[in-house]
Nucleic acid binder design. Structure first.
Lengths: 325, 325
DNA sequence: TTGAAAGCGGTACCAT
DNA sequence: ATGGTACCGCTTTCAA
């Protein structure tokens, strides 16, 4: 079933049918009704590849994510899908894993699919060398959620996580805690921001930074339990509070402390759905994911409409207090 | 940059360039090398819409999911993406919400994008009236993950959740518990299977079924806390164990019981990542999601290759024991 | 081994 | 208001 067949059944030309479908150009009332009726009867829908070829667009947005398992990322995907679809786009989703090779491959695949734009989710997409992203951006606009890259055709919306981390740690210090442990599991750029915030908070309070309290650990329950057990065994006051780079680590820390029979305040990061699923509920730094995704969707539409939105938008985060602090 | 430009730069015809790109038909060695070199130099990649128009395929699989927030579904998406991409397909992801209208809209949108196949995730896609799915399946093959529909061009892979639920409840009864509460939050078909399993287990053990123990509750912490508190207030032995339709509800139940200061065994469903994130870790019924997704991907490829794989595959589930039982 | 040309299914310009 | 037709970029058949 194609436009020729519809035209034939209506006794009109394909040009007329096309005009009816797209509302482009004038069509007689009777003709229009007839065409619409036949389309309805036959259930015809125009071939999207042919339209794509003409418009050089299928209204497809490529979305790259390193890891669907992380509740923060899957939440981001949920928000993005909703926002993009409400604006008439669909989402081509690719999971890259954490390796640079995987990310590069994902970018190439999306470019080859001729997507209208590419959205990268998370601070993990900022590397030391971002030439692969810059190269991609020469062909299709690139949008970064919670990451920032100053390059041609790249638009960023991020949370000021450095400041947010600083505020969270300051809150701990204000409450009288002196030795907050910082747990993270990757050494990527976004993490560096959080570490800076952590340091700044200590500095503001006039404390020196104990480098041993900034710890990288595998993202698994066992690894976190082992780590905390080891620390507390050596010195039961080795740390008096826990701050983590994400909520999953915070959940593990919660599990670990419970396992060890001790109670210390915990603050996670991302304010993901997980924070409210565990018991006690996690205090967590909210990095405004919904707002970021909403803004990104706006930016995408603006850029595709030829507008020139701000290349960088920075939102402030905030500490959401729940049971663990 | 298109195939004409490449052809011109090489001093050959577009037919030759096309043959080189697709490895279709013979090309002289020298010619081939030259074309490849120019393609390499220019970074040319063929327009996927034009190819889509010719092949009537862009190797895109539409995936419908009701709710990304549920860790079970997001895990399913992760598995599917991996499996499909390793087979050379990309994933067009649409989130429908739980309403039938949303699901219908999602199906139509995917059909209109001319996807090669449509995958539906979860028992939620089985309704009383499935004519919208059957209609869709007349245009493009439909695959159901953990749901079953006997219709033309529809292929299903599911877990025998009735049996799995029966085994889980039997395990509780065998351990001496007599009044297992069953919590669910939707009245869809998959839920009916679990309820049948629940009943069967009680019947097998010679107990009668107390209908008050089969309860529908909103999927929120508050609702579950309220419900359990109310039950236990009336009769502190109103139930002696909790079995839930999914892990999120189990996490809420865990929270509720902790809140109420009582301890009772809990068994969740889906064996999602959440089960290991909460403390204590949830016992949960594993419905073999990874295997289901793997099988679905195989079925998709088979059907698109014109083969006739089995229309229904049923995998058995099993109870994974952790701390809560 | 290579090229010319006919589609694939639409859109949109230019006539009428 | 309507129709003819060039064109979007590529694949593939048929001739040479």
């Amino acid at each position: 079933m194609n436009i020729y067949e519809i035209a034939e059944r209506c006794g009109v030309s394909i040009a007329t049918v096309s005009r009816v479908i797209n509302g482009s150009g004038p069509v007689g009332k009777a003709t229009k009704e007839k065409v619409l009726r036949v389309i309805e009867e036959t259930g015809f829908t125009p071939n999207s590849f042919a339209r794509g070829l003409n418009f050089n667009s299928m209204r497809l947005i490529g979305v790259l994510c390193t890891d669907f398992g992380d509740p923060f990322y899957s939440q981001a995907i949920a928000y993005l899908e909703e926002q993009l679809r409400s604006r008439g786009f669909h989402m081509l989703l690719v999971c890259t894993g954490y390796t640079v090779e995987g990310k590069k491959r994902g970018l190439v695949e999306l470019v080859n699919k001729n997507v209208d734009a590419i959205v990268l989710i998370g601070t993990v997409f900022k590397e030391n060398d971002n030439s692969h992203i810059e190269e991609t951006a020469r062909k299709v606009p690139v949008f970064m959620v919670n990451s920032m890259l100053d390059a041609y055709n790249v638009y960023s919306v991020k949370c000021d996580e450095e400041r947010a981390a600083e505020q969270a740690v300051s809150a701990l210090l204000d409450a009288g805690y002196r030795k907050p442990l910082y747990l993270h599991s990757q050494t990527w750029y976004g993490n560096a921001d959080k570490i800076r915030g952590y340091r700044q908070a200590l500095k503001n309070a006039g404390h020196s930074v104990d480098e041993d309290l900034i710890v990288k650990v595998d993202s698994s329950a066992d690894a976190v339990v082992m780590l905390l057990a080891e620390r507390l065994e050596t010195d039961k006051d080795a740390f008096d509070a826990v701050f983590t780079a994400n909520d999953v680590l915070a959940a593990y820390a919660l599990k670990a402390l419970e396992h060890l029979g001790v109670s210390k305040p915990i603050i996670g990061f991302n304010n993901s759905p997980l924070a409210e699923l565990v018991t006690p509920e996690l205090s967590s730094v909210d990095n405004m994911l919904a707002a970021m995704c909403h803004t990104i969707a706006d930016r995408v539409v603006d850029v595709l409409h030829g507008k020139q939105p701000p290349k960088t938008t920075i939102l402030s985060g905030s500490l959401i207090r729940r049971a663990t602090f």
